[in-house]
Design a protein around this nucleic acid. Structure first.
Lengths: 132, 132
DNA sequence: CCTTGACCTGGAGCGCACTCCAGACCCCAG
DNA sequence: CTGGGGTCTGGAGTGCGCTCCAGGTCAAGG
């Protein structure tokens, strides 16, 4: 069974070491193995869990809710329907986020085209900007 | 020419009144008209500009960079190529953001399907979770 | 053994983007 | 003309998610 040093785990997960320690402190990461001396030892399972945390974080879930999810994951199989509900709920918000991002990206592209026309125009000595 | 009260502008732009004042204070909003008494009066042009700010904000541009863009927009036509460059640059980041969000949304859907199988399974008395 | 770089803890500090507040002023419906 | 809700300013405060630090311990190569 492969294990990883803190630094290696940071590298692989994309979280800083400080963030990993922080996540453990607030209960997002539980039961991390230690050496006799007290240094953390991460496993592949830990990396898998970290990839879930990264997914939730990158999709904008607040840490408080991640803690709820982590807590439920520790609790046992009877929380699975709740976990499912939480994830479905979150997925809806993510979809809304994607919709908005797409829409604003369109707006941005429109602005860019506007400036492209202006810049091309001014090369030919044309004039002033008005509004959007 | 239509004008709007602060409250109406807040409603239409989706920013709070406090945020509008904050934006004016830091220079994202300049030359806002006032009544004799000193109260703000917003125009359609202001609303257009606010929709640009909203676009940039919603796509994750830091306020500092929005200030740069606002500054350039005030400066005159000779900054237009720079404005274009800034927006193109930002659009690239937005595309990367969309790519990541899409990918993590996939990950999330995978998790959801996993729990759907588990929940369906446990209804038939099956057993324990392992890993992802 | 010794060095030296990685790692530990608890707790303070930070950067961002607002958000709230006190105390005063404005303005319009009645 | 008055009442009350909307708005003003300057400045302090908030919440989030880390990030940094001091002062010490650990562990692997030479």
């Amino acid at each position: 069974m492969t294990v990883y040093t803190p630094a290696e785990t940071a590298r692989r997960s994309g979280f800083t070491l400080d963030t990993l320690r922080y996540y453990e402190k607030i209960g997002l990461l539980a039961d991390i193995d230690r050496t006799r001396g007290g240094q953390r030892v991460f496993t592949d399972d830990d990396l898998d869990w970290l990839s879930v945390l990264r997914c939730l974080r990158d999709t904008g879930m607040p840490i408080a809710q991640m803690c709820v999810f982590a807590e439920m994951s520790r609790a046992g199989t009877e929380t699975e329907t709740d976990r499912l509900a939480l994830l479905r709920d979150h997925a809806l918000r993510v979809q809304e986020q994607m919709r908005l991002l797409d829409q604003q990206h369109e707006h941005l592209q429109g602005k860019i085209r506007y400036y492209e026309r202006r810049v091309a125009g001014s090369a030919r000595g044309e004039t002033r900007e008005v509004g959007l």
